[in-house]
Design a binder for these strands. Structure first.
Lengths: 102, 102
DNA sequence: ATAATTTGGTTTATAAAATAAACTACTTTA
DNA sequence: TAAAGTAGTTTATTTTATAAACCAAATTAT
């Protein structure tokens, strides 16, 4: 049985902003909305929508609280999110390493 | 001057099917429509559209001729396309190699 | 001969995604 | 107390991706 050449890419992760968010979260314990916003150069509106999608997919946890009188949203990646990221990276490699393909 | 953490990903290439097409073409001299269709599992309609976009972007050359009485479309990647692919891969790596990021 | 099927696509219509603009709900400062 | 700032969310618009329908010609079956 022959291997599939191009594995499907998780559409949740195959998005520049969502991938950047997950990529950031993989490296840290937790990140604030504005930290992510600055690192990714996203607009607040776009970021809000994409965080919601990652949450709906179960890839991140979102915590809303108040800090110094202001609302504060923090995110952390879930085990599901980590697994999805790893799977995505492996799938993607099938598209990138052309010269080393059998 | 600090490096940008997440470089923009070329939207022409950040599409599963178009990336698969380019990935295929990088490895070969030339490929027929149906060869690409089979390798990528794309529908003919979708493939037709995405080939047109890659052509419009100057990433591939499209040649239409007849073979054994039937129309035959072949594609080959251009230098521009190769450069774009290499740039895309490098940019993408900034999103993937989390643990090795400074 | 001609009707049905197949080949090799393109075009058009629909669904989904990404993004920007506008808005909400406060808080702080002038 | 009015204006400006913080921290987001919601809605509307644009762009993409995809599927479905279509086209033109060739082949095969009747």
């Amino acid at each position: 049985m022959t291997e599939k050449m191009f594995k499907d890419l998780d559409p949740i992760l195959h998005s520049q902003l969502r991938l950047a968010i997950i990529s950031l979260l993989v490296g840290v314990q937790e990140a604030e909305f504005n930290f992510i916003k600055e690192k990714t150069n996203a607009t607040a509106g776009n970021l809000s929508v994409q965080i919601q999608k990652l949450k709906d997919a179960g890839y991140i946890q979102v915590n809303k609280k108040f800090k110094d009188n202001y609302p504060l949203t923090t995110c952390r990646i879930t085990r599901t999110g980590i697994n999805a990221f790893e799977t995505y990276v492996k799938a993607l490699q099938g598209y990138l390493h052309v010269s080393t393909r059998p």
